[in-house]
Write a protein that binds this DNA or RNA. Structure first.
Lengths: 138, 138
DNA sequence: GCTTGACCTGGAGCGCACTCCAGCACCTAC
DNA sequence: GTAGGTGCTGGAGTGCGCTCCAGGTCAAGC
């Protein structure tokens, strides 16, 4: 599989694939006689995992740490598992935060809907008090 | 309330507050005799709402559209409500996506845990097949 | 009246994650 | 044998959302 096909298969741009290789997120890509990159199924799997990490907000440099462990083989299984467990927690926190924000947005929508029904402006009371500092506790 | 106090109250930087004003996200800030910005409670409420929108991934230029409607008064209530309802949908989709990714990460963690127990590498089958294109349907 | 600290402005710089470009090589089909 | 498509490289450019800086003003406390 050449780079164009991988890009299509995984729905990322060719430039992104070369960029990921440049920064070390994708490694040891074999080349054909003409110097073109040839990707096997393991690259598809890895790239799909990168997409999961990316979709959950992991920065590329954190993925690089995970990728570095991958290079060292099974001996790094515990380290990789640890990294993923930390990330798992962050995802859970993100979901909780998003749910909280969703509720606030829905409150505001309701306020607008009743304001529209009454043809008035919305009351200041639904103009949001702080939602974050409670959690951040500072 | 001067800018330093607002920054502390809302847990954003002073530079960010001036930046938001520069791009038009915060408008009509009164000044005292010495030219310093003076913020009332409505600015705190607005800033907290901005933080909710930001936390849910709304780009600043979309907030600007909402802010522009706010300037026109109650006549834009329907427009503002529409914008929020579109955003509400996006938040819901984000939560669903995060939950899907969370499940995949958890699968991978489980795979690592059993691999660690057996002292082997993890099987290729849990090296991720595509999770996104199914949904994107292309 | 002087120091200190908070605030002001305009503009430059930064980190991230790409994205684009020029100029070139290779391979296949006609 | 040539046109078109796909690939290569190194490096520059982009958009976003801040963040920092220099050089200055203002107000309060000693």
């Amino acid at each position: 599989m050449y780079i164009g096909e991988l890009a299509k298969t995984c729905n990322v741009s060719i430039d992104t694939l070369r960029y990921y290789e440049k920064i070390g997120l994708i490694k040891n890509v074999p080349r054909d006689a003409g110097g073109r990159r040839v990707y096997g199924p393991s690259f598809v799997a890895w790239l799909n995992f990168i997409k999961v990490l990316k979709a959950t907000g992991m920065p590329l440099k954190d993925m690089l740490a995970y990728a570095a462990h991958r290079q060292t083989g099974p001996s790094s299984n515990q380290d990789r598992c640890d990294l993923l467990q930390v990330h798992e927690l962050r995802i859970k926190q993100t979901i909780i935060e998003q749910e909280g924000c969703l509720a606030l947005v829905q409150d505001k929508i309701s306020a607008y809907q009743s304001a529209i029904a009454k043809s008035t402006d919305i009351p200041i009371s639904v103009c949001m008090t702080d939602h974050f500092n409670k959690r951040e506790n500072k």
